[in-house]
Nucleic acid binder design. Structure first.
Length: 554
RNA sequence: UGGGGAGUAGCCAAGUGGUAAGGCAACGGACUUUGACUCCGUCAUUCGUAGGUUCGAUCCCUACCUCCCCAGCCA
């Protein structure tokens, strides 16, 4: 287990249960599992579950398996298992065992035969529609299938022939014989096995019958010796069936299921279906598009595993539906990057400045701290000469009150350099500002101890002659929040401005920046080098998160 | 209207018979060569509502209200 994230998880109801089970000796060793279905990429909601399972087991010196719940070949793909493994590893977790539900298909089949032998399961010839019709409703009991009382021998024979592939998809299913009048719909003779003549990404065509989640999952947990099987709230209704399967299949181990509320976050979508739709319809640039809430998207955007883990720990684990403010996630990545990322200057929207009283053909090198809050990061030298770029936002012709930046006649400090005063605004024929003429005061050099007068503002800049061209990608929420979001309106809620691409400059010493290198661009925020877009001479920086700001022009 | 869950601040979330932790956000102020960071302060006389038990209730009891989940051969 990685030591990246220190400290124990705050109290939560599941941890209390585990602690009690350990204290009373109900379980000898804690075993949890993270059981994704390989039908999509992992997202921040999965991260909550991953952290819960791994950190919980770790805290009690237990084990956690990574188990692929690959019981539906129609939706699953090997591409996803690879991506999921990478994401879990990247988050910093090491699983005890790597498991696949498909490895247990034979045992599951035998357990199903046991059920049949005990008269607890039967082969049903009803169509999917008939089964649905006969299931009853929320308020009315269901009707028993006419196939419900077939003999054990006939059931065994039919089930074996299902496995052999004698029947077409949908022709027959294996059902548990429980109670068609149960108020819990899950207990109205649930389907245990269905026929699907489909290629499975691991077992190929070895099987044409596949177990349903409700049958497979408890068996998987029991087979692996999982003690605490943690899932989300919508499975609460399934718990009686979970226990029924473990009991009736006579499993040696008796795992217990506990349910917690899945993560919802403001300004994003978390359903795999919607995320897949965004990918399939090319609305985003793949599962790892920085705008996606996927682990791979967050990674590409520049998030760190530590930030995600701390977030997962701090939001807590409970049973009430909730929506966490995305600013909480942002808070933890700022906190993590604060001491880790060197601070440097980048101009996202350049405005040229000419220091008219600075000698032409002269360059001086100024000392700059890489991170004042982390002196170990040392210093660097940055060039300063007659022509610079500053941020367009840092000059206003008609400034409002309390505007501390540059305007005609005003003086500001250039970070790490000198005070400059704006003397003249140069415009083109259209009246657009093309450059500023300023003067500097040599006495005000950074570090000189100059105190004769003060300025209210300090702005960042880069030297025009040395600056490195760069591209910046700024992100906004992919979808707009609405009061009542309906499925239909999902695509109409797509934010057309979720990606903004800017061309500007960074300090020349960023020439050697590598993919995923992170920087705090002075007064802008944290940025991370994009692993895919950064071609040889044009680095692309993704904005991880902006700096907080109490300033606004409006 | 059957069954299963949940209601503690704008958002998360502890607590659980003894008088409401913490985080995010927000708002003041100090500091500041980042309008950042940091620091200080403010932010629930009240825990969905109404009754009841008790010396004392967010916690126990009763009734009610609101929200979420369940009628896939998905997970």
């Amino acid at each position: 287990m990685s030591e990246l994230v220190q400290g124990s998880v705050a109290s939560n109801f599941i941890k209390n249960i585990v602690a009690e089970d350990v204290r009373t000796g109900k379980v000898a060793a804690v075993v949890t599992r993270f059981p994704p279905e390989p039908n999509g990429y992992l997202h921040i909601g999965h991260a909550k579950s991953i952290c819960l399972n791994f950190e919980l087991a770790d805290e009690f010196n237990g084990k956690t398996n990574l188990r692929f719940d690959d019981t539906n070949p129609l939706k699953e793909d090997a591409e996803y298992v690879q991506a999921i493994k990478e994401d879990v590893k990247w988050l910093g977790f090491d699983w005890d065992r790597l498991c696949f539900a498909s490895d247990y298909f034979e045992e599951m089949y035998q357990r199903a035969r046991l059920l049949i032998t005990k008269g607890k399961a039967y082969v049903c010839d009803l169509s999917a529609e008939r089964i649905r019709e006969m299931r009853g409703t929320l308020t009315q009991p269901g009707q028993e299938s006419p196939y419900r009382n077939r003999s054990v021998e006939e059931n065994l024979d039919l089930f074996e022939r299902m496995r052999k592939g004698e029947f077409a998809d949908g022709a027959k299913v294996l059902r548990a014989k429980i109670d068609m009048a149960s108020p819990n719909l899950n207990l109205r003779d649930p389907v245990l096995y269905r026929i699907a003549h489909a290629e499975h990404h691991r077992t190929g065509d070895a099987w044409c019958i596949y177990p349903m989640y409700d049958f497979a999952h408890p068996l998987e947990d029991a087979i692996e010796g999982v003690t605490h099987s943690i899932c989300t709230l919508e499975f609460e209704d399934h718990r009686p069936l979970y226990d029924w399967v473990v009991r009736e299949c006579e499993m040696e181990n008796t795992p217990r299921q506990y349910e917690f509320a899945r993560l919802n976050m403001t300004n994003t979508v978390m359903s795999k279906r919607k995320l897949k739709q965004l990918v399939d319809e090319r609305i985003v640039d793949g599962w790892d598009d920085p705008r996606m809430p996927t682990i791979s998207g967050l990674r590409r955007k520049g998030y760190t595993p530590e930030a995600i883990r701390t977030f997962a720990r701090e939001i807590g684990v409970a049973k009430s539906n909730s929506t966490v403010d995305e600013r909480m996630l942002e808070h933890f990545v700022r906190e993590d990057l604060k001491l880790k990322a060197p601070r440097t200057m980048a101009i996202l929207r350049p405005l040229k400045v000419v220091i008219t009283n600075y000698p032409e053909n002269q360059t001086e090198w100024l000392e700059a701290e890489n991170n004042p809050e982390n002196p170990e990061m040392g210093n660097r030298s940055i060039p300063f000469s007659r022509e610079l770029y500053i941020e367009q936002d840092d000059f206003l012709e008609d400034p409002p009150p309390k505007y501390f930046r540059l305007f005609l006649g005003n003086e500001v400090r250039l970070k790490h350099a000198y005070f400059i005063r704006c003397e003249e605004v140069i415009k083109d024929a259209d009246g657009s500002i093309i450059e500023l003429h300023c003067t500097y005061d040599p006495k005000t050099k950074s570090g000189s101890g100059f105190t004769e007068r003060k300025v209210k503002g300090t702005i960042h800049w880069v030297d025009a002659a040395h600056a490195l061209k760069a591209e910046f990608r700024l992100f906004e929420p992919l979808v707009n929040e609405t009061e009542n979001e309906s499925e239909e309106s999902f695509l109409s809620r797509i934010n057309p401005h979720s990606l903004e691409i800017l061309q500007g400059y960074v300090e020349e010493n960023l020439r050697t920046a590598q993919p995923y290198d992170k920087f705090q661009f002075f007064r802008h925020g944290y940025f991370s080098v994009d692993p895919k877009r950064s071609e040889s001479d044009l680095a692309v920086f993704n904005r991880v998160v902006s700096l907080k700001s109490s300033f606004s022009l409006s």
